[in-house]
């Protein structure tokens, strides 16, 4: 998939991510992988020198981070594999994570919902019991 090689814009990424999640909703198995890391290019990475042992620790200014999402299909199932990525600039981080959390929360429907009714029922039983 050559199209998946290039980074998507934030809105495109979110659209695709929603699709990825909705694809999972109907099925009873499968996984979605989300990864985040600092965006670095190996070419322009500053190499450690005797003067500065850890150049990564003292950056002059913030760097963007890379967000990836995939449905975890192996290369053998290339046809079904979905792989998307986007780059988030430092200034956009807060807004991005708000949206990101919303979509993931909505998408992860198979997790246990907060069940207050059961707890209350149990507590009532305990109170009533002894």
């Amino acid at each position: 998939m050559p199209s998946s090689k290039s980074h998507l814009s934030q809105t495109e990424f979110f659209d695709q991510l929603e699709k990825l999640f909705s694809h999972r909703k109907g099925s009873d198995h499968g996984a979605i992988y989300l990864t985040q890391k600092r965006l670095t290019h190996s070419e322009d990475a500053t190499l450690p020198s005797p003067d500065e042992e850890f150049p990564d620790l003292n950056l002059s200014e913030p760097v963007p981070i890379l967000i990836r999402a995939s449905n975890g299909k192996s290369a053998r199932e290339r046809g079904d594999k979905v792989r998307i990525s986007t780059v988030v600039k430092p200034d956009d981080l807060d807004g991005f994570y708000v949206r990101y959390a919303d979509i993931c929360k909505a998408g992860m429907a198979a997790l246990k919902p907060r069940d207050r009714s059961k707890k209350k029922a149990k507590a009532k039983k305990k109170k009533a019991g002894p």
């Binding site: 985040q36 200014e61 760097v63 981070i65 994570y97 959390a101």
Partner: peptide, 20 residues
């Protein structure tokens, strides 16, 4: 736990990654 993990934890760590 999802929204807390994503928004505050991943968000905070994301800031660290971005050297913010």
């Amino acid at each position: 736990e999802v929204s807390r993990l994503f928004q505050s934890s991943l968000g905070r760590l994301g800031r660290g990654m971005a050297a913010m």
